[in-house]
């Protein structure tokens, strides 16, 4: 029975550290700054006179920014912290030497990553409600947001485990996260992208998050994207758990 809850100390530790970070103004600022710059530059500047999919640009953009922000924060904080804890601070070794299962470590890290991703998303959502737009939240929006945080926290664990140095995590980010932020439908619909690139675009999980998060209800397209997100999440979770299980120095 105890095994089921053994993710909790890992999660609890991350939350204690997160609470300390929150007390520093710099953390809040860094979580918000990038999406807010995009919101001002693209939404309030460039997008003022643009209409996309029959709605004003801000109504299109804000859910995309929430998805992007949840991806960035879930992924980056987990990847970076896990990598540093494994290679420099060696606190990860305390988990490995504790009588808990690799999946407990995985769940604890991922849930903590989700909290960080959701925290950053909530900040963007608040800003989204403060500026005039047709942005609204549906149950599907919330479910997609949670799934997106889960998925990218899992990917964060994988990067944190694979990266051979802290600089390496930035390389992974430049290759996978950065292109996703710009080409997965955050700032413009993916149907505007040339056909020959589209297969790559549809391989990117964030593309599917952006499809589902903007829907009021699940249609066929949404259902397929939702299924893709679930498949990615399960695959990433299993691979991350395997990396932890096979960890050796």
């Amino acid at each position: 029975m105890r095994q089921i809850f053994l993710w909790y100390p890992i999660f609890f530790r991350e939350m204690l550290l997160f609470r300390r970070k929150l007390l520093r103004l710099g953390y809040l600022f860094s979580a918000m700054i990038v999406p807010i710059i995009y919101l001002i530059a693209f939404g309030l500047g460039l997008g003022r006179s643009v209409k996309i999919q029959g709605t004003d640009y801000l109504t299109f953009l804000i859910p995309g920014l929430v998805a992007m922000s949840s991806m960035n924060n879930s992924y980056t904080w987990v990847a970076s912290a896990l990598n540093l804890n494994r290679l420099y601070f060696k606190t990860f070794q305390v988990f490995i030497q504790a009588p808990i299962s690799p999946s407990s470590i995985m769940i604890g890290e991922v849930l903590a990553g989700m909290v960080k991703g959701l925290f950053a998303s909530v900040l963007i959502i608040i800003v989204g409600f403060l500026i005039p737009s047709g942005f609204s939240i549906t149950p599907l929006f919330v479910m997609t947001l949670l799934l997106n945080c889960f998925l990218f926290s899992n990917l964060g664990v994988i990067t944190g485990m694979l990266a051979k140095s802290h600089e390496d995590t930035a390389t992974y980010s430049n290759f996978f996260i950065m292109p996703m932020a710009f080409f997965s439908g955050t700032f413009f619909p993916v149907d505007k992208i040339p056909d020959f690139i589209k297969p790559v675009i549809y391989l990117m999980p964030l593309t599917h998050t952006n499809i589902v998060i903007r829907k009021a209800a699940l249609d066929t397209e949404g259902l397929i994207s939702f299924a893709v997100l679930i498949i990615y999440s399960i695959a990433f979770f299993m691979y991350g758990s395997k990396l932890i299980k096979n960890y050796t120095e």
């Binding site: 530790r13 550290l17 601070f89 060696k90 606190t91």
Partner: peptide
Amino acid sequence: PQENNLDREL
């Protein structure tokens, strides 16, 4: 361990 792997911020 030889390295100090305490959580320094806690």
